[in-house]
Simulated assay, not measured.
Amino acid sequence: MSADLPGHTAQLLHQCQGLILDIGPGTGEVLSRFDASKITAIYGAEPTADLHEGLRKNAEKTGLGQKYHVLRCGGEPESLYPALHKAGVLNPEAAAATFDEICCIRVLCGVPEPAKTIRGLYALLKPGGRLVVCEHVVNPWKTEGRFVARALQWVYSVMGWPFFMGGCELQRDTEDYLRRGGVWKRVSLGYVEPETTIPFIVGELIKTDDY
């Protein structure tokens, strides 16, 4: 499932270039989607230390090798910022617009404070930088989704989905959090399989040049 990417996620990852922040990469099953020749360096924020060995091995296998730097931290500012400072990427005094691209692939469903996390990531993007997302979200039943699928999301959540799935939230309106998380020059997000119980939004958000 980790390697299977909905919609045009693979194409978005292949376009990534420059200095990249990879949030919640797990064991790096999607690293093969990047084009190593376009990348200066990638910093992977992965809080689960048991996954780091697999992450490093996949970085080697996909040609990223010394370009991929594993950080033991989450995506929330209080965890991410100190780790980036320790790695010599970030000034300890304040968040700096540092990264050309930030990738969030099936990770924002599980962060404790999504609004705060997204604002923190926005601050790390350079002006004109790109946030690439592939996230499962609350079913858009009022527009292009289905009421039955939305109802099932509620049922599964009540039955303990977040508990059994490591804090994953089925009913999170991540698109709204993303749109309100910063000042964007362009937002290009679309639903993949909106009629299902686990629909995704896939796309990119480009930070305005003025921030």
Rank of each mutant, 00 (worst) to 15 (best):
L51P: 09
Y191E: 01
E60H: 02
H85N: 14
W184E: 12
P127N: 14
K57E: 14
T143K: 14
K207Y: 00
D4E: 14
Y43S: 03
N91Q: 14
A3I: 08
C168Y: 00
T27Y: 06
G18I: 02
P6K: 14
R150P: 03
M165R: 13
T27K: 14
Q171P: 07
Q171A: 11
Y156R: 11
E135F: 04
L189E: 03
I42R: 04
E193G: 08
G167S: 11
E46P: 03
S32K: 13
L71A: 01
D50W: 06
L21C: 06
A96Q: 14
I20K: 09
D35N: 15
L124H: 05
N139C: 10
H52M: 12
L80P: 11
A96C: 12
D173V: 07
T143R: 13
C104R: 09
T143I: 02
T98P: 01
V89S: 09
G44F: 05
G129Q: 10
L90M: 05
E175H: 12
A83V: 07
D210R: 12
M159Q: 05
F164S: 10
E193Y: 08
K207I: 03
S37I: 02
A97C: 03
P162N: 06
L64H: 01
H69G: 00
G65P: 01
A123R: 12
S37L: 12
P92T: 03
I20M: 07
L178A: 09
C16H: 07
T196D: 10
Y43C: 00
D50Y: 08
Q11S: 15
A115M: 14
G120V: 00
P114L: 05
K86P: 10
V187M: 13
D100G: 03
E76M: 01
G145L: 09
D50R: 10
K207L: 02
G26T: 09
F200N: 07
P199Q: 05
L124E: 13
G167F: 08
P47N: 13
P199E: 03
G63S: 00
L13H: 12
L125A: 04
A94S: 15
S157E: 08
D4R: 15
V107G: 09
F164N: 10
V133C: 01
A94L: 10
L124A: 09
V132C: 08
C104L: 01
H8W: 01
R179V: 11
A95G: 07
Y81M: 13
A41I: 04
G128I: 06
E93D: 15
E53I: 13
L51W: 00
D176Y: 12
L152C: 13
R180T: 07
L19F: 06
L80C: 05
E78A: 07
V155D: 06
